[in-house]
Amino acid sequence: MTADLLTKRPDRRRITSVPYALIVPAVAVLVLAMGYPLVWQLITSTQQFGLAQQFGQAAPFVGLQNYITLATDPYMWTVVGRSLLFCATCAAITMVIGTLFALLMNVVARWVRLFLQITLLLAWAMPVVAAMTVWTWLFNLRSGVINWMLTAIGLPFHGHNWLIEPLSFFAVAVIIVVWMSVPFVAFSIYAGLTQVSEEVMEAASIDGATARQRFFGITVPMIRPVIAIVLLLQVIWDLRVFTQIKLLQSAGSVKSETNLLGTYIYQLGTGSSDFGLASAVSVFVLVLTIVISAFYVRSMLKEDES
């Protein structure tokens, strides 16, 4: 029997068709629903593809014309700049609050920690569209509770419309995105914090390390890998906010002044029916995502090899 097992081991290393057969379904659905659209999009981004083409006319090849149109369009740069700024703002605020929450969980009484964790879980679990309807209601100009509270403490917010001004529109969007993203950050960093052993901390304090030294010398290095990966995910996710912006726009705002990359593509594709231009923006977004994701993917690959 043992001999049989020994001969079986090398078997796994022999070239076999089994693993290929196992990945066929996944590969097939990915090629069909992702690969094909990706290729179509790359091709279309080099074509003039407007309304006429929607009705069946052949799309003429225009080379990089769509990309040139975008690169020379100040509006495109406004949208790109806006998206990056929005992403950076959300990610930064989320990380700071999330880290503070994780540290807070570490120092409060046990029942408070449990309470905080449950409330964060509830916020995290809210489906994005449901969260959006609630926040639109909270910020409602006539009967929203936020305007009521601000008025109650004496500020002139009676009947204030939060969504009409682009700046306050984005302030609302940032609040919502941060509210939804903080729980993940807080839980991940707290998980990292719980791995900092008490013994090490004690030893350090016996050796005379101050609280500040222990924090920056032990805690921070221990949780740095978690912070790095969580920050990376936040940047990737905040760059692709579509639902939140789209739904806030539907609740009443000037689209051209509040578009981010996702909603701009949507508007180009569905509103102006310019698939060539929309594809070019999409390709830009994909390239941007892949560049940023490269770090994340590399760290996950290391995990796969271990």
Binding site: R12, Q41, F242, F275, S282, V283, S293, L301
Partner: peptide, 27 residues
């Protein structure tokens, strides 16, 4: 299994997972 193309497949899975829906929905 260890097979040829395994690494490429894992890489593709990880990358595709990061692609935003907005980048592909027109297509």
């Amino acid at each position: 299994f260890r097979f040829r193309g395994r690494k490429a497949f894992v890489l593709a899975v990880l990358l595709i997972q990061m692609l935003p829906a907005e980048g592909l929905f027109i297509a």
